[in-house]
Design a protein around this nucleic acid. Structure first.
Lengths: 343, 343
DNA sequence: CTGAAAGCGCTTACAG
DNA sequence: CTGAAAGCGCTTACAG
């Protein structure tokens, strides 16, 4: 059960190890006939070059890293990460790169893993998620010169290239749509406040509400869990001048909000319109189905992976803007009932 | 920006590279004082041993592999995998093992990746998910002698050790509970029929229904998506003698079923009781919250990782039974209304 | 307890 | 186009 090495292939082909290496890597240095013969023998005896030996000879590790710094419980409930990963994978496996994944408790643990990975030469580059307004990781990655692509931005990424979508534009479009339906009291249930994209959305929300003269616009913070989404919604809907529309920063909180509305006897969308960010199959499961802001998350991940691979190969990758999240109106939004407006 | 090597540490400590290696790996061969001095210097200059060099010198890759062979869309929606992964990670990172993840299209692609990983010595072992009734992967893993632990079973695992829970017992308990509430027409919406645990559950369901004299017990197949869950539920609830209780093989289908019931004007639980397998935060989000069969999935993953690590270290790991899924009654189950019984 | 050396399996200049 | 050899950074017998 000894695994075959390059020497075995060389012996059977009657050539040197160097020749086998050239043949396998598509380098010049062997004739086409020899190359074909070598490849056939390699396939026949089931040879794949040792990733360790390759990495050690100065070639790359052929692996990229992804670290998720969120509590285990909230990770499972966000379809976002798994969809992102499957998109990343699609790009990587085409070039037989591996994905090394790690789940950590917080950003300082994340930074420690970056340092270790780089020291160990375990990965050739990393994908960075959940960018914060004042992010610890950016300066460290710059210092290490570890190739990195940020998923998010476009600001706050330092000198690191990023793949991002225009969340501000999507939010403005959503508020304008609700405004056009007749809504005047719009609330927003935001995600974790120190995430950069939360700040970007909050700023856009405040801006467009001001422009439209919606003085009562309010943003409340949350943590993406259903529990918090429900609690915050209950508070919003209990206020004297309750909102007639709420925009949630993820699908889970939106569904929790829908539940709370139903529990409080409010009809959706007659008494309350609901919009969810990050459209997912969940949004179509509930009744009524949720109006949502969606984008192709696997494609987003694939784009990020492609940029990173380019960076690893030595190209200079700059930022890449992907499609702006699209609003898909469904049953959870509509004009507010008159009584709601003055309740 | 050159990353420090073992030679740098040795030079600064005034010892040989061998001594540094012994010190780092806790091997005998250096005095305690020397060991401490070496460790201090290593920490000071930020040295971590190259994983490639280690792997090449016959040590292990210090990485384990996990392959997910499901369509990208259904992956995101199942909290199961992400929770499993976070449990696996908790166990691995404590010993600074890495997790190499790959998403593939089907089992034959999965087998190809196992062969490649083993040839490349990229991983020291693998965790195997989604065991099928006649699984391609088991004989290949046995042939490769790639250390592997199956998540699932306990049958159909060949000579591979497995970590499993008694799904049959959990299903029996659930049916008995529904029977005690007064239900006589119980249906089950099953997951993918060629998954082994689906077969195990189906067999248990048929068995207990027979024992209790529930002649109308029916299992229908599905694919875990909300769309299919909704379609199948619509068909079940449209039949002349519609079931008064339905057990779903995942949370997403159960929520879809709840939606369909509401859309068809059936009250839950008065007209229809609903039970979901794999309790998740989603089950508590909807209205009414779903009665569910739950277990600690991160702990399940951690157990599997622990078994695999043991196997890699040369111990003989045998099967390990983990806790049986627990039934948590919530608002979605109750006695059926009389009219439902005879409808 | 320590040092010098071989070897893991590749890649890549360097001669022929 | 091909062969012989050095080198990547570790680990681990083997002498001292």
């Amino acid at each position: 059960m000894k695994r075959p090495t390059i020497a075995d292939v060389a012996r059977r082909a009657g050539v040197s190890k160097g020749a086998v290496s050239y043949a396998l890597n598509g380098q010049p240095g062997v004739s086409e006939a020899t190359r074909q013969r070598i490849l056939a023998i390699a396939a026949e005896i089931g040879f794949s070059p040792s990733s360790a030996a390759r990495a050690l000879s100065g070639a790359t590790a052929r692996a990229i890293g992804l670290i998720l710094a969120r509590p285990a419980r909230t990770l499972g409930i966000e379809p976002f990460f798994m969809e992102l990963i499957s998109g990343v994978e699609a790009e990587l496996s085409a070039r037989s790169y591996a994905l090394t994944l790690q789940v950590v408790a917080d950003q300082s643990a994340e930074v420690a893993v970056y340092r270790r990975w780089w020291g160990e030469r375990r990965v050739d580059g990393v994908l960075v998620c959940d960018l914060r307004t004042d992010d610890l990781r950016v300066p460290v990655l710059e210092e290490l010169r570890l190739p990195a692509v940020v998923i998010g931005g476009p600001t706050g990424t330092g000198s690191l290239p990023s793949v991002w979508s225009d969340d501000a534009a999507a939010l403005v479009e959503t508020v304008e749509y609700l405004h056009a339906l007749g809504h005047r009291r719009i609330a927003r249930v935001a995600g974790l406040p120190d995430l950069l994209h939360t700040a970007i959305r909050t700023q856009a929300f405040t801006g467009v509400c001001q422009r439209l003269g919606l003085a009562e616009a309010v943003t409340v913070s949350s943590d993406y869990t259903g529990e918090e989404g429900a609690r915050v919604t209950r508070r919003l809907l209990s206020s004297r001048l309750r909102p007639t529309a709420v925009i949630y920063d993820n699908d889970v909180m939106a569904i929790a909000g829908l539940s709370v509305a139903q529990e409080m006897g409010l009809a959706v969308p007659a008494h309350l319109s609901i919009v969810a960010w990050d459209d997912s199959p969940l949004c179509r499961l509930v009744h009524p189905p949720l109006t949502a802001l969606g984008r192709d998350i696997p494609a987003y991940g694939a784009n990020a992976a492609r940029q990173l691979l380019r960076l690893i190969e030595g190209a200079t990758a700059e930022g890449l803007e992907t499609e702006t999240p699209q609003l898909t109106p469904r049953g959870s939004t509509g004009p507010p009932l008159d009584e709601s407006l003055t309740a």
